[in-house]
Design a protein around this nucleic acid. Structure first.
Length: 664
DNA sequence: TCCCTCCGTCGGGCT
DNA sequence: GACGGAGGGA
């Protein structure tokens, strides 16, 4: 027998004469990372050191070397990040780069699972539960148990979901999660375990998955099916994972599986920017990467290109206060720059007035609104400011906080659509039925279980139908049939659901005019999806921010100002950054003050916020705070204690009548 | 029996 | 502002 060895085609052109002058455009370390070819690599990249740039150019380089774009997998933290990087790569090289596979772990897992659903015992049309859906499902399975525990304090649905999720993402038994984070509920351990079991059973019986299941089942699928693992991982010739410090143990395992056929895995991240421990991320994951992946190459990007030195000095000073030390000191060759300002406002109103006045002033100096961001710890920390911005007609877009699809009226419409996509979705049925007059939890449950036993029959055969809501049920059936016809025309489907829902909405909500407007925008937005299934998946995996719909409609020539939670601002940068509500109890959050590790994470969060700024940085807080008890004095963030004036210049606000305005 | 409204309690960041 | 228990009303 003759043997002929087929060489591995590594896609590399023999004489690489690149169209892009990588060596000139990148510094030495970035160049190393971009040219890295085989095997595992870890890129430790401090804030603003050109991490995104490096990934963008590596994508371009691989494509330029002839690698099939679909063979590159770029896992990022959000959909937005992936899209931005691939657009950038397409603009530095060419259109081929936009065919690179990019998205979050959850997206990619969702795709794989829909392809291989039969291997994990789910129907191919399985639907996704977002957080509120998952909580409602838990509530549903919890009800019979909770009745027995009357009088005793049993965890609420969202708490239960958090427990289960922590157990999955940290890969720890439920008992350990309770013992460390919920000792007050340890007495209910067995009952909680029972709820968890029923929750799992419910999900597999009804063909639904929550976010964590996407990761868990994909892991299981690839571990248990060698052929699928080989097929999937050899399709991905290069795997890159951005923001690796915010992955958890399960995701680390997935990254390994996705690249198991060849080991071409590049992890990129910064341990000092790990801010997702609350959802199971562990920054030790990035630190132990070299141990987990043998012969790993380590590349460090240290020079900052983003911020002026005074901003970096403040960031360095802040991070040096962490109890867990980071061996990191950011430096730049950028000259000049103003000292970051610490603005003490008499109250929250004045804080908002300051921010608005200052940003208008900056706009007059030629800065566009899109180059300015206002960052805060919690979604609600911007309410007062939003009011002020609206008053002054300053357009803004908010990231983080309430999502479009979290509003009750949007969820109501979505529930109708879910029924079409997955008729077994009891939670959706329940929501839809409860909207009808005279139907409460009990009747809804009876109707649903009848429906499960008698698929394809109409309610009127059930014998359960009382006169009071018979007509409403008939109307519902009509609209559901209509929706079914519009499976591939989501715009029309949503429009007819909205038409049906209109009177219900007006009756239920005092503020129905605003909500009806939202619903109209929703119909317009839905038209851009291929089919109902896609609409649901995209909205679940990549939920729209509540203001996105409005802003997009009213967007003129100028990019709007950005308001964002610090978590959602990860990886982004602006010329000028305001960090507002920098109060103790907010950042650090009141929940974290007893736990040194949690406190460290809050500090890293402030570090992330500061390092978003290129030229100017303001940290602001109000001296007094309003609450339901009245006005009281608030304390600035403990992280600001002892920061010398040479790093952070104090500003006092004065009213116009006094001789000087906004003196420093 | 079931539905609905009222009120005390608790509240985060994201896929 | 949302959840969930309690009590009034059809």
């Amino acid at each position: 027998m003759k043997r002929f060895v087929l060489q591995q085609d590594d896609g590399r052109a023999s004489d690489a004469s690149y169209r892009i002058a990588y060596a000139e455009l990148l510094n030495e370390q970035q160049y190393q990372a971009v040219m890295h070819d085989r095997g595992p690599a870890l890129v430790i990249a401090g804030a603003g050191t050109g991490k995104t740039r490096t990934l963008v150019y590596r994508v371009a380089r691989l494509v330029e070397d002839g690698m099939e774009p679909r063979a590159i997998l770029l896992l990022t933290f959000t959909r937005r990040a992936a899209k931005e990087m691939l657009d950038k790569a397409a603009s530095v090289l060419d259109e081929r780069c936009s065919h690179v596979k990019g998205g979050t772990f959850h997206h990619y897992c969702n795709q794989l699972l829909h392809t291989y659903s039969e291997h994990i015992g789910f129907p191919p049309n399985f639907t996704l539960l977002d957080q509120p859906d998952a909580a409602d499902t838990i509530h549903h399975v919890r009800a019979p148990l909770a009745a027995k525990l009357r009088g005793k304090r049993f965890p609420q649905k969202n708490t239960l979901l958090a427990m289960f999720s922590a157990s999955v993402n940290r890969q720890q038994p439920l008992y350990d999660i309770l013992a460390s984070a919920y000792p007050q509920f340890l007495q209910h351990h067995d009952a909680i375990l029972e709820v968890q079991k029923r929750y799992s059973e419910y999900k597999s019986m009804n063909g639904v998955m929550d976010f964590d299941d996407l990761l868990v089942y994909t892991h299981k699928l690839l571990v248990e099916n060698e052929d699928i693992r080989n097929k999937v991982s050899s399709r991905n010739r290069q795997v890159m994972v951005d923001e690796y410090q915010d992955t958890n143990a399960l995701q680390a395992g997935l990254a390994r599986l996705f690249s198991s056929a060849h080991g071409n895995l590049m992890a990129v991240g910064d341990d000092a920017q790990s801010i997702y421990a609350f959802r199971g991320a562990d920054f030790r994951n990035i630190l132990t990467f070299p141990e987990q992946f043998e012969k790993c190459r380590i590349i460090r990007l240290e020079e900052n290109y983003r911020s002026v030195q005074p901003v970096l000095d403040l960031a360095n000073t802040l991070i040096s206060k962490a109890s867990q030390k980071f061996d990191k000191k950011l430096f730049t060759r950028k000259e000049g720059g103003d000292l970051p300002g610490l603005v003490k406002a008499p109250c929250e109103r004045d804080q908002s007035r300051f921010v608005c006045q200052m940003l208008l002033q900056l706009r007059e100096q030629g800065l566009s609104l899109g180059e300015i961001a206002i960052l805060f710890r919690n979604g609600r920390d911007s309410y007062d400011l939003e009011w002020e911005l609206n008053k002054r007609n300053i357009p803004f877009q908010k990231f983080g906080g309430q999502k479009f699809s979290e509003a009750a009226h949007i969820r109501d419409i979505l529930a109708h659509i879910k029924i079409i996509v997955n008729p077994d979705d009891q939670i959706a049925w329940n929501r839809v039925l409860l909207l009808l007059d005279g139907i409460g939890p009990k009747t809804a449950q009876e109707l649903i279980s009848w429906l499960r036993r008698n698929k394809d029959r109409s309610f009127s055969d059930s014998g359960l139908v009382s006169k009071s809501y018979q007509q409403q049920l008939e109307q519902l059936s009509i609209v559901l049939e209509e929706l079914n016809k519009y499976r591939d025309e989501p715009g029309k489907a949503v429009a007819s659901a909205v038409a049906y829902y209109n009177p219900i909405c007006s009756k239920r909500f005092d503020d129905h005019p605003k909500r009806l407007k939202d619903l109209d925008s929703f119909a317009g937005l839905a038209a851009s999806y291929q089919n109902l299934e896609e609409l649901l998946q995209e909205l679940t995996l990549d939920p729209l921010d509540a203001t996105a719909v409005e802003t997009e409609a009213s967007m003129k020539d100028e990019d709007p100002l950005v308001l964002s939670t610090i978590h959602s601002a990860k990886g982004l940068e602006w010329d000028t950054v305001f960090i507002v509500q920098c109060l103790d109890g907010i950042i650090p959050s009141g929940y974290s003050v007893d736990d040194p590790q949690a406190l460290d994470e809050e500090l890293r969060l402030l570090y992330v916020a500061c390092t978003r700024a290129m030229e100017r940085l303001f940290v602001t807080y109000p001296i007094t705070k309003e609450s339901s008890f009245g006005e009281y004095f608030s304390n600035p963030s403990r992280f600001l204690n002892g920061i010398p004036e040479k790093n952070l210049e104090t500003w006092m606000l004065e009213e116009e009548s006094s001789p000087k305005q906004l003196t420093s």
